[in-house]
Amino acid sequence: MLTESEPTLNCCPDAPERIILQGAWIAHRLAKAHRLDELQKTLNNLQQQPGRIWDLRQLTGLDHLGAQLLWRSWGRTLPQQLLCTEQHEGLFRRLSQLHPDQYPPPVKARLTPLMQLGSGVITFFHHAGDMAVLLGQLVLDLMQFIRHPLRGPWKEISANVYRMGAQAMGITALVGILIGIVLSYLSAQQLRTFGGDLFIVNILGMSIIRELGPMLAAILVAGRSGSAITAQLGVMRVTEELDAMRVMGIPHGFRLIMPKVLALAIAMPLIVIWTDLMALAGGMISAQALLGMTPEFFIYKLPEAVPILNYWIGLLKGVTFGILIALIACHFGLRIEPNTESLGKGTTSSVVSAITLVIIADAIFAIIFSKVGY
Rank of each mutant, 00 (worst) to 15 (best):
Q87V: 13
R147C: 12
G196T: 03
F124C: 08
R210P: 01
L78E: 04
V133D: 02
A109F: 14
Y185Q: 01
E89Q: 15
G180M: 01
L70W: 02
M143Q: 13
T85F: 08
A173V: 04
L204M: 05
K155A: 14
V107L: 10
R93G: 09
L69M: 12
M115D: 13
I122A: 15
S187A: 08
L98Q: 09
L212K: 02
S119W: 12
M169V: 14
A166V: 15
L114W: 13
Q116L: 15
I146Y: 11
Q116E: 11
M169D: 08
F124T: 11
L114Q: 12
L70Q: 04
Q116R: 14
A168T: 13
V161N: 07
M131T: 07
I146P: 05
P113H: 06
D141V: 14
A159R: 11
H99Q: 13
V175G: 02
R94S: 10
S158E: 10
N202F: 04
Q137G: 10
R110H: 14
L134I: 12
K108T: 15
R192K: 10
G118I: 09
Y162C: 12
A188T: 00
G152Y: 03
R72P: 06
V182F: 02
I146D: 07
G196M: 04
I157P: 05
L111Q: 14
L212T: 02
L216D: 01
A159T: 13
E211P: 00
V133G: 03
I203E: 00
F199N: 01
P79T: 03
M169P: 07
F199I: 05
D197G: 04
